[in-house]
Design a protein around this nucleic acid. Sequence first.
DNA 1: GCAACAGTTGAATAACTATTCAATTATTGT
DNA 2: ACAATAATTGAATAGTTATTCAACTGTTGC
Lengths: 124, 124
Amino acid sequence: MNKTVNKTKEHTCEVDLFDPKRVASVRKKMKPEGTMQALAETFKALADTTRVKIIFALSQQELCVCDLASLLKVTKSTVSHQLRILRNMRLVKYRKEGKMVYYSLDDDHIKNLFDEGLRHVEEM
Amino acid sequence: MNKTVNKTKEHTCEVDLFDPKRVASVRKKMKPEGTMQALAETFKALADTTRVKIIFALSQQELCVCDLASLLKVTKSTVSHQLRILRNMRLVKYRKEGKMVYYSLDDDHIKNLFDEGLRHVEEM
DNA sequence: GCAACAGTTGAATAACTATTCAATTATTGT
DNA sequence: ACAATAATTGAATAGTTATTCAACTGTTGC
């Protein structure tokens, strides 16, 4: 399958003398495409300063949308849009109480992930 | 500072009856802006399928750029661009050997973060 | 020196995303 | 019913980013 030398014609740029044994051995261990994508999606949900702040705030205490807007000094619309992303990823849950909607973290798992990241950053 | 009712004029849209005690108590615990940004940056480095695959592959074994290109079926240029991002975030390190450049994970910390994410995804 | 190749880089493009704005829904109190 | 306000939503915009392409650097072997 993988020839040791993978020659293409004249103009170089994609010839490639990779090591087929090394590549094959790693390929066997690779997770399915779907897993890799889901993992990237999860990290993507945390890959924004506003969402990081929301997650941190909610790890301290349940808060409504306008608490968060006030705390972060952004509009409710912005908070609401970002909360939708976190909701879709099952990172936060909510309960309604009259006009207000109170958000909190969906489980401890996300807190672990977050804290692991925090430890990484604070050890720099 | 925070008045209980934060009235603005006529046209609504940003009035906000947030709870100042709740907000103040969380605000005290918030990490500095820089920490929040660094954290988002770290997650951003992992927030892409190609980079997730690179990190996973390197967690198995040290690999050169064209190994990675072959494994992931993308061009060396693409791999190189993404490796630069990971290098800048100190997530991977490299050593040169002749023409080849071998990359590996910078430390175990990143592996922990990655595994924590993997556990989250695989428990869905 | 020259050809071949590994890797890097900058520019361009296409796709994606955060925020803003305006409109809408739903709930509370009068 | 009406006014006020919490929250959500869709569209538009501006900014960001992944990939591609072409050119380039540096190393090896002839």
